[in-house]
Amino acid sequence: MRREPPQNIGDYAPLLFPAAMLTVFFVVPFGTMIAVSFFQRQQGGFYMPAFVFDNYGRFLSAFFGGVLGFSLMLAIAVAICCVVLALPFTYLLTRTARSVQVIWLVALLSVLSLSEVIIGFAWSTLFSRTAGITNVLVALGFMGEAKALTPSFGAVLTGMVYQALPYTVLVLFPALVRLDPTLTEAARTLGASPIKAFFTVVVPALRNTITATLIMVFIFALGSYLLPQLLGRPQHWTLSVLITDQAIYQSNMPFAAAMAVFLVLVTLGLVALTVIAGRRGEAA
């Protein structure tokens, strides 16, 4: 069958329902959110149509700058941790028997599908004083007495790496499966040890994949809306947490919407920058 352009109007029929659904329930809501970001907030959680930049003006504060800076820093830290952990793991995984691969993939998908609520609850339990990891260390004699490890920055980072690690593996998986195994074999015959072959052949061959994965995990981490709240202190709150907070608890929809629009712009801007940098790197 050759793919052909639609011959008549009837050929477009299958597109009708998906196009309508995506337009009405994604494009329109997105537009609504942008519109609301320019609205005027009123007392009691209501807002009225207007066209003001007040909501965007609020960004120009030291507090907001701090949150933004922390959000980006946290997302970058999570992305780097995940890629560093996941790259050798995924590489080894693609070189194991298929049945082993399938078991791991099922496990990774199961963890990936877990709600942030559940991940937050599980890690706060693990880091708690009464039921946490420190009890095990006490039992083994490494520690004097159990203590709580949360809230702390380390707890937030750990929780978010936990959340993003399966995602990172699954993003890397297709690219690594396709990697020609004779590449490393060739390096081995030329005298490189397995670890040296990994760093001198696999990593350079995957430079673009690694960059793309870093961006994707970065965006994924930017979206984390509960873990900083459940495992961290208020100074560890990210933009996503702040948006949720403003929308739900402070009932300031216009400001929440403005922050959301800003988050989209930051995300897209960083992606664009990285893509441009990547192109320049290739050209050089």
Binding site: P29, M33, I219, Y225, S240, I243, A247, A257
Partner: peptide, 26 residues
């Protein structure tokens, strides 16, 4: 439409959530 179909899952979930909230409220 392919792009629109992939976008909600790619953007931070808060974005989609807030878009839906403002939309249904409106």
């Amino acid at each position: 439409f392919q792009l629109l179909g992939v976008a909600p899952f790619t953007l931070p979930p808060v974005i989609t959530a807030l878009g839906m909230l403002t939309f249904w409220a409106t």
